[in-house]
Amino acid sequence: MERSQEELEASNNGGSSPNKITGSVDEEVEYPPLNLALTVTPEFLKQIESLQQQQRHDSNSTPPGKTKPMSFPISKITIGEWTRDAVYEQDLKGKIYFAYKKIMWECLEDDVTTETTRRRSRKIEMQWCDVLSLKPWYHPHDQTGILSVELRKPPTFFIETNPQALKHTQWQKLDQDFTFNHSASRSRMHTLHFAPGVLQANMEKLVSGDRFWSELVKVHFPTSDHLYFDICHGNHEDSNN
């Protein structure tokens, strides 16, 4: 019996037709290389060099986990004559921003200026460079913590505008200090109290996150015996008058 032309071609190519892919659908099929020539141009070399520089920069940069903002609950805060206690964890918060070099205390409390009762956040904000010294202290029995912070000049004050659930907080800068008797504008010392373990964990993150804080904890606390800012301190600037 004569064999068909297709059968003869399949026999000459190892038992399969060159125009068909045989085997199961799960069988891996190898394709021949494209044999395309690589043309090395100056632009191509510049792109390679740029990628290499970016990789070196990324490898030398600070790990992302160490530059993320810190947020931690505060049990109680005292500044001069002004004191706030947290009933719920969200009532008092400390926040530290590494990118913006800012530290702040946020307090959530009832807003009595509106007809309907709602809660609104207020914020005391300081630049890192305005922190002269700080001292953490841990109770040996229950590991509650106290952090004392000494400032160089008064902080700035903000109030939340148009509070909305699940939305980023919008802030409005205030012209006046909202603390009792303007305590935060007069007192250089801020004292913060923390639940067991909170201060320890966050101090470790803080000093390892930026060299500024690792050096600041070595500074003698306090740097001055004066409890209040200079009486001639106006507009957050020192005055010689």
Rank of each mutant, 00 (worst) to 15 (best):
K102C: 02
R122N: 05
W128T: 03
A99G: 03
T156K: 13
S75E: 12
K93A: 11
G94E: 03
T144D: 05
L166W: 13
E81D: 13
E150F: 09
W105R: 03
G145I: 09
T144E: 09
I159A: 14
E81M: 07
I103G: 07
C129E: 14
T161Q: 12
P140I: 05
E125V: 11
S148F: 13
C107H: 15
E115C: 06
I79P: 01
F158Q: 02
T83G: 00
R120Q: 11
T169F: 03
K167N: 08
F178C: 00
D175N: 15
E125K: 14
Q164H: 12
T83I: 11
P69H: 07
D91V: 10
Y100C: 02
E150G: 13
K93E: 06
P163I: 04
T83H: 03
G145T: 10
E89H: 07
E109N: 07
F157P: 02
A99C: 01
G65M: 10
P64E: 15
P154K: 12
M70S: 08
K68I: 12
K153W: 00
F98C: 00
M70V: 09
W105D: 01
P163Q: 05
T114A: 07
L92D: 06
V112F: 15
E125R: 15
A86T: 01
C107T: 05
I79W: 07
I74A: 04
C107K: 05
T117F: 10
K102M: 09
A86M: 05
V131K: 03
T117D: 04
F98Q: 02
I79E: 05
F157S: 02
R122A: 01
L132T: 11
W137A: 14
R122S: 05
T144Y: 12
P63E: 12
Y100Q: 11
L174H: 05
K167H: 11
R120S: 01
Y138I: 15
V149A: 03
E150Y: 13
Y97Q: 05
G65N: 11
K101N: 10
R84C: 03
L134C: 08
W128V: 02
K68D: 06
T156W: 01
Q172E: 15
R84Q: 06
F178T: 00
I79G: 08
F98R: 08
L174R: 12
R84V: 06
I124H: 04
R84S: 04
V87T: 14
I124G: 01
P140K: 06
M126Y: 06
D130C: 12
W137D: 13
T156S: 09
D177S: 02
I103S: 12
D110S: 10
G65I: 13
L166V: 08
E81L: 08
V131F: 03
E106I: 14
G145A: 09
S121Y: 10
L132Y: 02
L151C: 13
S71N: 11
Q143G: 03
L132A: 14
F178N: 00
I146H: 04
E150W: 03
P64N: 08
T161E: 15
